[in-house]
Design a protein around this nucleic acid. Sequence first.
DNA 1: CGATGTGAAATGCTTCACAGCA
DNA 2: TGCTGTGAAGCATTTCACATCG
Lengths: 242, 242
Amino acid sequence: MPNPSSDHQAAPTHRRIPEATVGRLPVYQRILEEVLRAGTTTVSSELLGSLARVNAAKVRKDLSLLGSFGTRGAGYDTAFLIEQIDRELGLNHVWPVVIVGIGNLGRALAHSHGFAARGFRVVALLDIDAAVIGEQVGEVVVRHVDELTTIASEQPLAIGVIATPPSAAQRVADLLMQSGVRSLLNFAPKVLEVGPEVLLRYVDLSIELQIMSFYQSRMVAPGEEGAMPVIRSIGLSTTGFD
Amino acid sequence: MPNPSSDHQAAPTHRRIPEATVGRLPVYQRILEEVLRAGTTTVSSELLGSLARVNAAKVRKDLSLLGSFGTRGAGYDTAFLIEQIDRELGLNHVWPVVIVGIGNLGRALAHSHGFAARGFRVVALLDIDAAVIGEQVGEVVVRHVDELTTIASEQPLAIGVIATPPSAAQRVADLLMQSGVRSLLNFAPKVLEVGPEVLLRYVDLSIELQIMSFYQSRMVAPGEEGAMPVIRSIGLSTTGFD
DNA sequence: CGATGTGAAATGCTTCACAGCA
DNA sequence: TGCTGTGAAGCATTTCACATCG
């Protein structure tokens, strides 16, 4: 059983973590939380790897970038490792989030359980539809988009989530940027134009389906060189775009 | 102006397309659709690249993997290029989709407009809540999960979307796999265990936020070696997990 | 003995730079 | 002339293999 408090090297401040690794850290974290909840206090790179569908050596290399947190012969202390990943991902801060567009998707996001647990505080919900404004969703009351400037002046907003119809998405993005929001998560099926100083991440549900259909069409087609019988698993990552 | 019908080399069947490229193709496709709708019938790799936030050379290399579809001196014919990408992604087929879990997220997905346009046909909506069963969402009536076997025997189901609470997710995944579904898109915040023959893709909204907060914390922290002032943009990709 | 941590090799991806064509 | 298509170089990531240590 490893002992978190005695050995374990302190994490060097701000080593350069490869993007590919950053993309996997939240996945490890989620798995570790489940594993811990199940009562397993120590995990090996092998176990973690098989749950994440990742080569064990890759897991070890990823984790070694955060510091030497494992115990040879035993593995990693689950709870301790979660803490280290939290710290690395900046989840010891509180990140105020604003969601714009309170339709089905916006509601699903607002209700999302994991948010609060991970330090994301939904501080504002915005829409333009009078039928929704004033409604309480979770802890927060929906307000009109025009109030964004006021809200932003009262408190900093770290992340803006765009869950509007595509026709409104660019306008909302502009508005958020004007209000000082520097990270946008866009769920609208719309290509946004934002400055290079804005961190933009795009989650499009039909894109996910398209990628799956691509791999599936390769699976069923007994193609050329020995066929490609099996695609094992595709996960999330941050690479691919610079 | 390029002429789609005359020159343009036919696409070789089943070249090996890098995963990273596959991840970008749907993005190009969405951009091209918007560009075409705006009336631009020819695009350069430069334009496409700037909209996708991707190096122009990368765009050219990506597209050249599908075949020689550009016209030197002019660029790519927008409509023709869309067709080629569609074909490559297998979007000339119809992909029957089943959505399990008709809460806010399930509804948002069921209503998703782009689905039908891209050959994804939502053929079944399933839940276990009597209050929802029988309700018509879009074109389809919600049925009980127990009917899955019957539905699957009447028609093939290509892709299963899991939009249930996490506690039900593994059970639903097992059920879908038993019914012959070989591709799962999981929105539940739950680590699924599925066989290696199943294509599994995991979209977790708090993971997206975690990654953004990581980069944001690096942006504001004027760290070591010359600081990292700006993260340009992060997009979707398929790499990072094998 | 069993599992980590890590150089070094192998692989994959991106970018450059420019020949070649419309 | 302008923009594509592509070898080749450069860079990043993954995987291997094993020394190391609890």
